[in-house]
């Protein structure tokens, strides 16, 4: 074989080997690390898996936000105005988190249907809505104030 061809063959083999290793790594990493998103309606109807990391997004229900006096524990409910999911969280909330605002919580659903959140995401500015929340509301057929469209 021509030495240039031979070298190229080795190169191709090397690249193929390396990329299959990388693909293996990717599939392994993806398996445990993707978070599926569920609107509150699907969580309440039992479509969301229990004990697995998921994300739930909706509007924070007016009057549902409760804070403990002696710790950082917080509870609130996320709603798409058809169904509501109670969420508990311990820690500091993002600046733009508030009642009547859109939020996305990621965490694990307990047997009682309470989301034990490990992370809360809110909007980045006043006018912006997380796309997941917009999607959840679109599915439930309500606007962000809770009126039917």
């Amino acid at each position: 074989m021509h030495p240039v061809r031979k070298q190229r063959l080795y190169l191709v083999l090397f690249v193929a080997l390396f990329s299959s290793a990388a693909i293996g790594l990717i599939t392994y990493a993806l398996r445990g690390n993707i978070n599926l998103f569920y609107p509150p309606t699907e969580v309440v109807s039992g479509e969301a898996p229990i004990g697995q990391s998921i994300r739930v997004g909706g509007m924070v229900e007016e009057g549902s936000l409760l804070r403990a006096d002696d710790s950082l524990a917080i509870s609130f409910t996320l709603t798409d105005y058809q169904a509501s999911v109670p969420v508990v969280y311990s820690g500091i909330l993002p600046d733009l988190f508030g009642e009547g605002q859109g939020a996305v919580a990621s965490g694990v659903l307990s047997d009682e249907g309470v989301l034990q959140a490990t992370e809360i995401l809110a909007k980045h500015d006043e006018n912006y809505m997380p796309p997941e929340v917009a999607y959840a509301l679109e599915n439930s057929g309500y606007d962000k104030k809770g009126k039917t469209k």
Partner: peptide
């Protein structure tokens, strides 16, 4: 569905 790929990946 809507998934997110997080830092662990």
């Amino acid at each position: 569905g809507k998934v997110s790929v997080g830092p662990p990946y």
